[in-house]
């Protein structure tokens, strides 16, 4: 069963990882029955950068991440990896990942993912618009000597 054409599985997982936990809870409050394959676990991921921005990698520092794996009664497994230390967030992401591989995908795309994507686009556009307003417009005086 494919998930919605607009968003593939990595994209959906990324959106669930970046979504504010309370927003995700509000959009998808009640979790369906599921089995826990891996209980939510808080850990650290070492973030890497590149020397000079484009060269060989180096270790920049860690970020907190919470992961969880679940299985639906139909046997579909789901995995959630989310930024931060919110265990409910990781479980909710894992359950949604599993559900998005079932026939519920289209409905969840509309009721959860599309809204999260719109929230994120709006948040990013608002930041970019504020930054855009601080763009310097130079006025250059041309002197006559070179003519």
């Amino acid at each position: 069963m494919s998930i919605t054409p607009a968003l593939d599985r990595p994209q959906a997982l990324g959106l669930l990882a970046r979504a504010p936990a309370d927003r995700l809870t509000a959009l998808f409050p009640d979790l369906p029955p599921h089995e826990t394959l891996r209980a939510p676990e808080v850990g650290a991921v070492m973030v890497r950068g590149r020397q000079g921005g484009t060269g060989a990698p180096f270790n920049l520092g860690e970020m907190s991440v919470t992961r969880c794996s679940v299985r639906l009664p139909c046997g579909t497994a789901g995995h959630g990896y989310v930024q931060g230390r919110d265990k409910d967030h990781a479980r909710r992401a894992a359950v949604l990942d599993a559900l998005l591989q079932t026939s519920a995908a289209d409905q969840l795309h509309a009721s959860v993912l599309a809204i999260l994507a719109a929230d994120e686009a709006e948040r990013r556009a608002a930041r970019a618009a504020r930054a855009g307003a601080t763009k310097v417009e130079f006025f250059t005086m041309v002197r006559g000597e070179d003519q």
Binding site: E41, V42, G43, A44, V45, M46, V47, R48, G49, R50, G53, T54, P57, N59, L60, E62, M63, S64, V65, R67, R124, R127, A128, R130, A131, T134
Partner: peptide, 23 residues
């Protein structure tokens, strides 16, 4: 605190060329 966290793994090197800049 960070010494108490299990290391889940490492990221791919971040692409700062694709940064959404505010400055």
């Amino acid at each position: 605190y960070r010494t108490t966290l299990p290391r889940i793994g490492h990221s791919r090197p971040v692409d700062t060329g694709a940064m959404a800049c505010i400055r």
